[in-house]
Design a protein around this nucleic acid. Sequence first.
DNA 1: CCTCCACTGGAAACCTAGGCTC
DNA 2: GAGCCTAGGTTTCCAGTGGAGG
Length: 399
Amino acid sequence: MNDNEDTLDKIFERAIKGKSIFKDRNTLRIEYVPDKLLFRDEQITRLGQILAPILRGNKPSNALLYGKTGTGKTVVAKYVMKKLSEKSKLTNVKFSFVYVNARLALTEYKILVEFARELGMYIPFTGLSISEALDRILIHLANNHLKTILILDEIDFYVKNYGDNLLYEFMRSQEKLPSDSFISLIGISNDLKFKEFLDPRVLSSLSEEEIVFPPYTVEELKVILWERAKLAFNEGAITESAINLCAALAGAEHGDARRAVDLLRVAGELAERSGSNQVTDEHVKMAVKSIEKDRIYEAVRSLPLHAKIVLLSILFFKEPETTGKIYSKYVELCKKLGIPELTQRRVSSLISELDLLGLVSAPVISKGRFGRSKRVKLATPILTIKEALMEDDTIKLLF
DNA sequence: CCTCCACTGGAAACCTAGGCTC
DNA sequence: GAGCCTAGGTTTCCAGTGGAGG
């Protein structure tokens, strides 16, 4: 029996016996909201106090939650909203809460589209002005006497890219709404500096209440992971040192619980796939690599065609190259494909975008007499990028 | 100290897809 | 269907620039 057969055999064997590493892998998903949130009592209480007035039909203050990624902001917000919804069934007050992630929505307009969709109304994905879209939402709220709490996640991303117009409109929306409906805004931010971009009026209104989420310590992460592991894995399916390693790796960054839980999930999946019956340190180490690879793969795959061609052009050079050189290569590739090429100005922007995604590194350097340009080189394993680029039918023609 | 390369990156104009009103 | 609107991507234009070589 060779290794493959051996592995398959183990997997099938376990499937038959109904025994697996996981008891309930859903508890390790990002969206999962646990019944009990650890080390966040203070924040939960504060947010609860802030939002409680809605149970009597009054408008809660706007609030701002901030802290680094994976410090529990989103999960606390969702948790409190869940509890609040349950409580509201006992009273007559009807309200809705809407969760929108600004970074996933991408544009100002799409935030509104998302907001509307969550309220159960339809707004066309193009064709309306922003103010028209907002007006429609307000009319909908007014007609249905809706009290709404809008949780705007990654609000810093939105403000940095689009300014605070929309926030300002939300703040002023009360003037256009009857007294029995309102929008309260809960902003969630990874970055405190974004306040500098806000108009003072918006700032004072948004940060009527502020809740800070400190990073988890490694010790706290360990406890959190243990709690999750108990729900997710079968008895004895994970070693203590594997959990500690997850906690240590995530703690080394900045106490990122999301990353810690992610590591645990992927490590579990890898262990299961390899036919092992226990998650060990080795699986965690493999998980680190696997997560990084997936990230790159996904980033490349979702790139628009021209960005992919630019990336491929960069791939051709072993040494760091200037924008000019890469542009010539890019033009050459476009000719081969028989598609019209973009201007160098645009390609320069595309390179900057690839830099932002972390796929390439492209700092601007000066070479004195020989001009000033970006120094472009890959920042990620070439094989992974190649593999991901091959997925594209058009790009494939160039290999 | 000055020059001048090979761009950078801001600003505005332009194009396209789609929805609006009448 | 005409004539209007907007968002988002792109092109056009161009002033600005860090520093090696003179």
